[in-house]
Design a protein around this nucleic acid. Structure first.
Lengths: 213, 213
DNA sequence: GAATTAATTGAACGTTCGTTTTATTATCGT
DNA sequence: ACGATAATAAAACGAACGTTCAATTAATTC
């Protein structure tokens, strides 16, 4: 009826995060109860409050770290001194790989925004906007260089991001298509969508090894 | 403390539906309480149960009728005896017009699926799959006729639908772009995405009056 | 104008929710 | 071995939840 043998704060907190992502992704933030989460971790509900002061703090932490992870992944994957088409390709590859690898966390970050308080919502949206701006910049530079033919940069960026993020809705690992195949197809769809001149990324050459992460 | 003067079942039920769509879209199904909904309608919570036996029945009704409306709209907009490109254009126009016109209902139908019981979830998904299959058919026939060049019909259909439905996330009526402009741009993006041969739907000819609904 | 039906209220039911408080035990540093 | 601290359990809090029920009044029917 108190501290249990072998209990460890770090391990418990990690277990709480993981269980929370899965439960929120499956049932939704409002539908997941703190008791349900505690039971999944194998602990009493009161113990959760040692790590997260409120339920919303838990949600916010998950979202913020997800967005930070996304930006960090892009910082690492981003190719400098590359033409717009290559930068766009890197963006697409990174986006799809990251989101397929963290399907549940992405679901949470996309679906539970309305459960955040106004300031926290603003923080997350700021992170998201900054990430999306990178894509708009690539598209604009590509259009200015004559590599892409785009009617509306902002609208195209939104269309692309929704198309790519949508992968997590239907993609299931181990089914008909592999991550590599899906990425290759999305890459060629993207290049056609932005009117990239060359057919470098068509079906004929689906993968070119470099930076598939 | 009983029936109020001027009360009318049909009007009340319609008011409940409308308020429910708006509240669920804004706060989420779980977060919306029956008392909150009743207050929005100007009625006591108990009165709601004259029209919908449970909260989930209300949600299911909203979703089912939204999906039925989508299919009916497509039945009316669908052009027979048209080439694949024209059929695809009609599909895109109808999809965007319908979803922009019912942003809140679309949000509900897309976000609250997990709050349905298993059988009802199956029913809604069946309707959705049937609607999506129409797009796949158009894509396949266009690809077979050589009008489109598509790598994977199913994957392309999903990508297109997510791209189009994503409009409701950022589109706000009366802002920078009009529905007509957005539709035209999405149309040309779609045609490029599927590798349509002709440039009929490019920026040079964004609108051709016919069937803009 | 009386009887019937439609529409709603107000109060209550039991349950579950997020959270707090207090006590208790394990672990760690010395 | 012992004091300090970390980690948890157990119980309880008030509030809110979906839903039900009986009572009451407006509208309709005959």
């Amino acid at each position: 009826m108190a501290r249990t043998t072998g209990s460890d704060g770090e391990r418990t907190e990690a277990a709480v995060r993981e269980a929370a992502v899965n439960l929120i992704a499956r049932y939704g933030y409002e539908a997941m109860s703190m008791r349900q989460l505690a039971a999944e971790v194998g602990v009493q509900a009161a113990a959760l409050y040692r790590y997260f002061p409120t339920k919303e703090d838990l949600l916010f932490t998950l979202m913020r770290e997800h967005m930070e992870g996304l930006r960090e992944a892009w910082e690492r994957a981003r190719p400098f001194d590359a033409d717009p088409a290559e930068q766009l390709a890197a963006y697409v590859r990174n986006h799809i790989a990251f989101h397929i690898g963290r399907r549940h966390a992405t679901h949470v970050s996309n679906m539970e925004l309305r459960s955040l308080s106004p300031d926290r919502l603003t923080q997350i949206l700021k992170q998201r906007t900054a990430y999306e701006k990178e894509l708009r910049t690539i598209l604009r530079e590509g259009a200015e260089a004559g590599d892409f033919s785009i009617e509306d940069t902002g609208l195209t960026a939104m269309a692309l991001i929704q198309m790519m993020t949508g992968v997590i809705v239907w993609f299931r690992p181990g089914e008909r298509l592999s991550v590599t195949e899906v990425t290759a197809t999305y890459l060629s769809m993207t290049m056609r969508l932005v009117g990239a001149r060359m057919d470098t990324y068509s079906a004929a050459r689906p993968l070119d090894g470099q930076r598939t992460q």
